[in-house]
Design a protein around this nucleic acid. Structure first.
Lengths: 237, 237
DNA sequence: CTCGACACTGATCGGGCGATCATTAGAATG
DNA sequence: CATTCTAATGATCGCCCGATCAGTGTCGAG
């Protein structure tokens, strides 16, 4: 009645079970089976949330439910591995270097970086697991927010200061106000993914153009505001 | 077994109210009981999500679980009423008038509007139910997004055009690109609430100052970008 | 071709879920 | 104070959950 949820999510080549009337017992190596379960778990929990049942997950894999417990001691352990899979294994260190590559115009760096970054996070799996885990209240999102601040926002902050000939970090240290301003921008980009992939409300612009215009507006509006912030910070009342 | 007795649900003023520590059975008027259940349901589902059990909800109220079913035919109906309570009953029509009140500077209107608006939505209950319902995939978030676009963003769009002497809607109709730009801003503000009340990662700025700086940056950066968009729209290649 | 290791299954346990119903008790009425 | 209406309860149903374990069948080593 409620969720329809396309039934056949079949990742395996060969013939395995689309609505299997008779699924043959398939014996895989432990490594391969474990990987297969984990991959399916990411997809499945992203769809239905972490309250989804292990039986339904097993059905999607074409195996029985106890098999999951041979590879993961408890459902909670499986979920923990799902976090690792989604959060940790997708980050590309090059992205950070790109942001700091002063041989390219800042606008181009930002557009390219956010194009690649959103290629990772604008994915139903990533976004939904991000939200589900945040709502569950384990600390992983706090960790992620710190990560974004240090790896992305702080770096953008530094580059904007350099490009717009504002004081360097050595002269005036990073201000919380600056970081929060870049959060407005970053969160605004994030919200595009939320609208599109979680709420399924199609935005007006395609992603590329959206990023371009958002970057343009940010680069035009943020530096003047930051100049004021830094002036206040350098010469407090 | 577990007579927990957190008996603070003592709603009725009226008579004496010695708050009997036993008070086995409390008989309320249907209206009052219904209201009480609904209110508790908002808080409870916001905490644990819609997979939370009706028994735990009843325990919080100090009543038995079947009583809920006397007032709400099914859990799904109760949840639907929770949506109505949270989404529909909190909106203030004056806010919209405020945005269009040209006797005030646009910056002040925006800062005041977003202060009041965030007073409503930056609340664990509102934010969490917003996310939970979005993840569940019922259409209410799509409805909300349309609502925001029409009641808030479109209006801001109109006021920015007027203040910055850009073409009126009659001259050049609203562009999807404009709306999406204001979504970047709006989503950026929303993300502040997400960081603070869902992920419990305290931002650097307090809310008021955050809104002020975000509005300042937006008002500085968005109009030039929009001028370009409108020029393109008025004279296409 | 045989056989043993072990990847996998079927049956099952205790418990929590949404929902139903006959029963009980609190307050307004006479 | 007895009566009556009905808000609220206690018991219970059928189902699905996470987890366990004895058994089964497959496949590679000999």
């Amino acid at each position: 009645m409620d969720h329809d949820l396309s039934r056949e999510m079949n990742g395996k080549p060969g013939r395995a079970a689309s609505a299997p009337p008779q699924a043959r017992r398939q014996r895989l190596s432990p490594d391969e089976r474990r990987r297969q379960i984990l991959e399916a778990a990411v997809t499945y929990f992203a769809e239905v949330g972490f309250d989804g049942g292990t039986r339904a997950l097993a059905r999607k894999l074409g195996v029985t439910q106890p098999l999951i417990y041979r590879y993961f001691p408890s459902k909670e352990d499986l979920i923990r591995e799902v976090y690792n899979e989604v959060y940790l294994s997708r980050w590309r260190a090059e992205w950070e270097d790109l942001l700091s590559d002063r041989s390219l115009p800042l606008r181009e760096r930002l557009v390219t970086f956010y194009s690649r970054y959103t290629e990772m996070i604008f994915d139903s799996k990533w976004l939904r697991i991000y939200l589900f885990s945040g709502l569950r209240g384990i600390g992983i999102n706090q960790w992620w927010i710190t990560f974004v601040e240090e790896r992305i926002l702080r770096r953008i902050c530094e580059e904007v200061r350099h490009t717009h000939r504002l004081p360097s970090f050595a002269e005036v240290p990073v201000q919380g106000a600056e970081i929060d301003l870049y959060w407005t921008f970053h969160g605004g980009v994030f919200y595009y993914g939320l609208r599109r992939h979680v709420y399924r409300a199609e935005p007006h612009l395609d992603l590329r153009r959206f990023i371009e215009l958002s970057v343009d507006s940010m680069l035009e509006g943020t530096p003047p505001t930051i100049r004021r912030i830094l002036a206040e910070a350098a010469a407090p009342a």
